[in-house]
């Protein structure tokens, strides 16, 4: 048996520390070794062997970047999902008592639609009205799965009863899981928008404002926002992860500016 050592991570001996720095795989006893730890993570913007982008070689699929601003660490990732490296990197910082954005609870909340919307509503952000069902979906409505495998980017729009039935069968794995529905008005328009540190590129002022509010609440540097608008209002419908490959040239330039400290947080 071993007792905890007083600090979360067991003290590494010198040889282990060297191994970490040289990226030789090593083992941490009762602790997490994150590839994004200060000792062994590539600095933002540095080239890596799996580069897919000439504009910013660090932004390759499944990688994540740690950006420091004073005592705060911003984790930039295309996938903050539960049990991923990004998630555990955030968790490690929290357990060590460091300030990290987004928080582990924020990333879990953001991608579960009812939690995201209720948290946003309580913060004064306009959100779509929602309900949870295990079978019936009103039409027209926008539907999201509520289970381990749900991806908010793959929402379904139930325009009529037949489409609603098909969508429900798909989202619930034929009744196994509940789902979240949001009623739509007949003049509703559904839009998606990528938000980089609370900013958007080429969007109207109301979308910009919503993006800023969402960032202030969840502090997720890279997120896709689904909104529902009509002639009267624009409301948040959901948040979902954003792949680097989905970034437009302008959005990539904006993200790069943050990574290179050309734009201050």
């Amino acid at each position: 048996m071993n007792k905890g050592t007083g600090s979360l991570f067991l003290q590494q001996d010198e040889s282990t520390e060297m191994a970490m720095r040289s990226c030789v795989p090593c083992i941490s006893y009762a602790g997490i070794m994150s590839p994004a730890s200060p000792e062994n993570s590539p600095p933002p913007g540095k080239s890596t062997s799996h580069s897919t982008s000439r504009r910013n070689p660090a932004l390759h699929r499944d990688s994540f970047i740690e950006l420091r601003e004073g005592d705060t660490r911003h984790i930039i990732s295309e996938n903050y999902a539960y049990k991923t490296e990004s998630y555990y990197s955030i968790l490690r910082h929290e357990l060590d008592g460091r300030t990290v954005k987004p928080s582990s609870s924020a990333v879990l909340d953001a991608y579960v639609v009812p939690i995201c919307l209720e948290r946003a509503r309580l913060a004064g952000i306009p959100v779509c009205e929602w309900g949870i069902s295990q079978g019936y979906a009103p039409s027209p409505s926008i539907l999201y799965g509520l289970n381990y495998f749900a991806n908010n980017a793959e929402y379904c729009v139930a325009g009529d009863e037949m489409k609603a039935k098909e969508a429900v069968a798909h989202l619930t794995n034929r009744g196994k899981y509940p789902f979240c529905y949001q009623k739509l008005t007949h003049d509703a328009a559904i839009s998606t928008c990528i938000v980089v540190f609370g900013k958007t590129t080429g969007k109207c002022r109301s979308v910009e404002h919503l993006a800023r509010q969402v960032y202030d609440l969840f502090a997720i540097p890279l997120v896709t926002m689904v909104t529902v608008s009509n002639s009267e209002s624009i409301k948040l419908s959901s948040l979902s992860p954003t792949r680097y490959s989905q970034l437009s040239p302008d959005e990539r330039t904006l993200l790069n500016a943050y990574l290179h400290h050309q734009v201050f947080l």
């Binding site: 048996m1 071993n2 007792k3 905890g4 050592t5 007083g6 600090s7 941490s28 006893y29 009762a30």
Partner: peptide, 11 residues
């Protein structure tokens, strides 16, 4: 571990 509670050796 943080609270020094005894657990089996864990990695």
């Amino acid at each position: 571990i943080k609270k020094q509670v005894s657990i089996p050796r864990t990695v």
